[in-house]
Simulated assay, not measured.
Amino acid sequence: MHDLVIFDCDGVLVDSEVLSNQVLIDSFARYGLNLSLAECMALFVGGTMTGVREKARALGADLPENWIEQIYSEIYEVLRAGTPLVAGVPELLGQLDSLGIPYCVASNGRPEKMQITLGQNGLWDRFRDVMFSAHVLGVGKPDPALFIAAAQHFGAKSPVVIEDSESGVTAAKCADMRCLGYAAHHDGARLAALGAEVFDDMAQVPKLLGL
């Protein structure tokens, strides 16, 4: 039995990736880079915004120096307007609560962003004290430091990570942790190739965890 479940936030707890990536697409188009939603998500899901900026510049986007603050402001505005939970998350958290299995969130996103998305869905109080952010720790996925810090906080010996990005799966495997790869918008092949156990419905998680 696992003694800690570590959730990614965007795309795992909240269905925010399509919303955020559409904002990226619109921004990139203003600066000379045109991408489809599928291309944008394949390139940027799971990255830090600094990494997104550098990769976009390498692809030809003429992004200004203040672009990161600009894009965060635009993304936050869209997320505040309504970010749905991933289907099945409340039920899964309730089951973990009933079994006394601790859980936390570990994300490359800023705490302010998680407060917007989790707060409007009633999950902020559940996660506010067990939130591990790359912006606080100073290092993000694919570095395993976030997951290692989370496991150390709980004294967990057998944690499991639930991720939806290649960088997140890579971080979990580098931390020598089991990783479940949530693939709601694609076939999950790239996650599986990195060692994740792919699933596409949160209702499958209890069985995968042996609950």
Rank of each mutant, 00 (worst) to 15 (best):
D62L: 09
G140K: 08
T83L: 06
G155Q: 11
G122M: 05
C179W: 11
H186W: 15
Q152G: 04
L96E: 09
Q115N: 05
D129F: 09
L59P: 07
L123E: 03
C174W: 03
P142Q: 02
L79I: 05
A183R: 03
P142R: 02
G82M: 06
G100I: 09
P64D: 10
V130P: 00
N108H: 05
L59I: 15
R110V: 07
L59Y: 08
A189P: 01
L137V: 13
N121L: 10
A61I: 12
D164I: 09
F147W: 02
F199Q: 03
R128N: 03
L194G: 01
A183E: 02
R190Y: 13
I71G: 00
A87D: 13
A58R: 13
G181I: 15
L146G: 00
Y76I: 11
P111I: 08
S98G: 15
Q115V: 02
A156C: 12
G168A: 05
G60N: 04
R178H: 12
D200R: 15
G109E: 05
R57V: 14
L85T: 12
D97N: 10
V78M: 12
I162M: 06
M114H: 09
S73G: 14
A171Y: 07
A81R: 14
A171H: 06
P84S: 15
N66G: 07
A81N: 14
G109R: 02
T83I: 07
K157G: 13
I162K: 03
V198D: 01
Y103P: 01
A58D: 12
Y182L: 15
A149I: 11
G82A: 11
K113S: 09
L63W: 11
G122K: 05
V198F: 04
K173V: 11
G168L: 09
E74V: 15
E77S: 15
C174S: 08
C104Q: 06
M177A: 01
R80H: 08
A106D: 02
V89Q: 00
N121E: 06
L137E: 01
G60C: 04
R126A: 14
P90R: 12
I116P: 00
A192M: 08
W67S: 05
G168K: 03
Y76T: 07
L92A: 05
A189C: 05
P84C: 15
G122V: 02
L123N: 04
T170W: 02
H153S: 10
G88L: 12
V89F: 00
A145V: 12
A156W: 14
M114I: 07
I101L: 14
L96Y: 12
A61Y: 08
R126E: 11
M177Y: 07
D201I: 03
F154M: 05
R57W: 04
R110I: 08
W67K: 07
E197Q: 12
A175W: 09
P144W: 03
L180S: 04
G109F: 08
L191E: 02
L85I: 14
G88E: 08
M131C: 08
S98F: 11
M177D: 00
